[in-house]
């Protein structure tokens, strides 16, 4: 009985953490897929989303709106955070990446690194160096499943993350813009020849990826109850590992990879000394890149484009 409860609890934890990593990983994988750039600033977008979530949630709570219209206020919090970070993503793409589209990859990578440093320090200056507390809105209520306790908050977050991922999948598979994104990622020149507006397509990617990261940021803030200006770095690296694990550029892969990284980390924390848990993601990353650089779902062979 004990072990069973423990196991169920760990599975829930892994699902939660995995959804977060998957959401962030999607941003990396989409951007890499379309412009072959590791968007180092993506971790900061996650953090920015978390901060905006905190700001909006705080304002709504002071107005007493959260108590009276819980669902609506949750919607507003997520929508505002995602919209803000989408704006941020588009701005960064325009300023830091677009001028370098034909430059060497090293230049673009360093530009992204610069943006990452700029954003995290900007947030430090504007929002402070210490942890900021998130108002506890998710409550402590929950249900018991096979002896394990699952809070409504966990259920809500996982469900919402899954909904976002399903939505993204539908968008990419079914809509015209989504197909244009895939076409641009697979063969940019040909996409241009067919009349696809490449700039617009890339901009769309920088709306969707950051917005998903922002959603993850709000979730983490609500769940763990605090935000900090540098909280995006480690999850960012782990999510990148997840994207690589799933085969970078592959959207389904990013989801699977995120879940796997979440699971590995939870298992590690459950059975092995937890101060080493941040090492796991790096080790997984290195092992994957060494043994199977195309990822576990790696049908996509990445070729260097000349």
């Amino acid at each position: 009985m004990e072990t069973q409860a423990f196991l169920v609890q760990q599975i829930v934890n892994a699902l939660f953490l995995g959804s977060i990593y998957a959401l962030i990983a999607l941003g990396y994988t989409m951007v890499y897929g379309i412009i072959q750039l590791i968007n180092f600033a993506h971790g900061e977008m996650f953090t920015a989303g978390s901060f905006i979530g905190l700001i909006v949630l705080g304002a709504l709570q002071r107005m007493g709106f959260v108590e009276s219209h819980f669902v609506l206020s949750m919607f507003v919090v997520f929508a505002m955070a995602m919209a803000y970070v989408a704006f941020l993503g588009v701005a960064i793409e325009h300023v830091a990446y677009k001028p370098l589209r034909r430059a060497s990859r090293l230049s673009a990578l360093l530009s992204a690194l610069g943006m990452s440093i700029f954003l995290s320090n900007g947030m430090m200056l504007s929002q402070g160096v210490s942890d900021r507390a998130y108002p506890p809105v998710l409550g402590t209520g929950g249900i018991h499943v096979l002896g394990a306790r699952i809070t409504y908050g966990q259920i809500f977050i996982v469900a919402f993350a899954v909904a976002l991922m399903v939505g993204l999948n539908l968008f990419v598979k079914k809509t015209k813009l989504g197909k244009a994104m895939r076409a641009t990622a697979q063969n940019r020149r040909m996409a241009g020849l067919l009349g696809i507006n490449i700039d617009k397509t890339i901009r769309t990617t920088f709306v969707i990826g950051p917005a998903l990261g922002a959603a993850a940021g709000v979730m983490v803030g609500m769940y763990y109850g605090s935000v900090r200006f540098d909280m995006g770095f480690i999850p960012g690296i782990k999510a990148f590992a997840a994207a690589v694990l799933g085969g970078i550029g592959n959207i389904t892969g990013a989801m699977v990879g995120g879940m796997l990284i979440g699971m590995v980390e939870v298992l590690w924390a459950a059975f092995l000394p937890s101060e080493w848990k941040d090492v796991t993601a790096f080790i997984v990353l290195i092992l994957v890149l060494y043994f199977r650089p195309t990822g576990i779902l790696g049908e996509r062979v990445i070729e260097e484009r000349v």
Partner: peptide, 20 residues
């Protein structure tokens, strides 16, 4: 000093865009 890294990050991007 607190603006140092901010300027540093910004300069890195600007440099890459203008004079790689």
């Amino acid at each position: 000093a607190s603006y140092r890294m901010l300027a540093f990050g910004g300069a890195m991007t600007v440099m890459m865009v203008l004079k790689p």
